[in-house]
């Protein structure tokens, strides 16, 4: 029997387990395995190996599920506590932006008046007016940074990520 036929048979043995075979391939392989003890033994070894993989028993650590459930519940409680605070923060930011848009013409007048008083160049006034809009965002960033700093002081087992 030629080497190519054995190669093909071994490839089909693996393909049958990984992807499945077309009917014609399956018929050809079965016929070959009946005549070829070497390839037949290879197929048996492959099946034995897969059987051992499927039946491998791994002992679970004691109380793994209950310890995990306890940690998950603690973390859930912590998240629930933080949720209203965060919602309030975003509400405050949104309200601040809306108020900012509504009051923009008046704020600009104040900036223009300060400019008249101090003789500041118009470019500086415009930059200052632009920065005025970033105050709510800066405030939100500071709160979030403080929150993450507080989180990093928590004990190791309470942290959400390693």
């Amino acid at each position: 029997m030629s080497e190519n036929l054995h190669d093909r048979a071994l490839q089909l043995v693996a393909k049958g387990r990984v992807e499945g075979l077309a009917q014609s391939e399956s018929d050809w392989l079965n016929a070959h395995l009946q005549d070829c003890e070497f390839c037949n033994e290879h197929a048996r070894q492959t099946d034995r190996a897969l059987r051992s993989l499927r039946t491998a028993v791994i002992p679970l650590p004691a109380d793994l599920a209950s310890r995990t459930q306890f940690r998950v519940r603690l973390r859930a409680m912590e998240l629930r506590e933080r949720e209203p605070k965060r919602r309030m923060l975003w509400l405050a930011c949104a309200a601040s932006w809306i108020f900012g848009i509504a009051s923009a013409p008046y704020v600009w007048r104040v900036f223009a008046w300060i400019g008249q008083l101090t003789g500041m160049p118009k470019l500086v006034l415009e930059i200052g007016f632009g920065l005025w809009w970033t105050i709510p965002a800066l405030f939100a960033v500071i709160v979030l940074l403080l929150e993450s700093a507080r989180q990093s002081e928590e004990p190791e087992w309470m942290k959400p990520s390693r």
Partner: peptide, 23 residues
């Protein structure tokens, strides 16, 4: 256990995975 090859580490990752599932 199969991907880390280490029982204690697999246990840590097990708990961490469920925390991530929650989050």
């Amino acid at each position: 256990l199969y991907i880390t090859g280490d029982r204690a580490r697999a246990e840590d990752f097990f708990q961490e995975t469920w925390i991530r599932v929650l989050e």
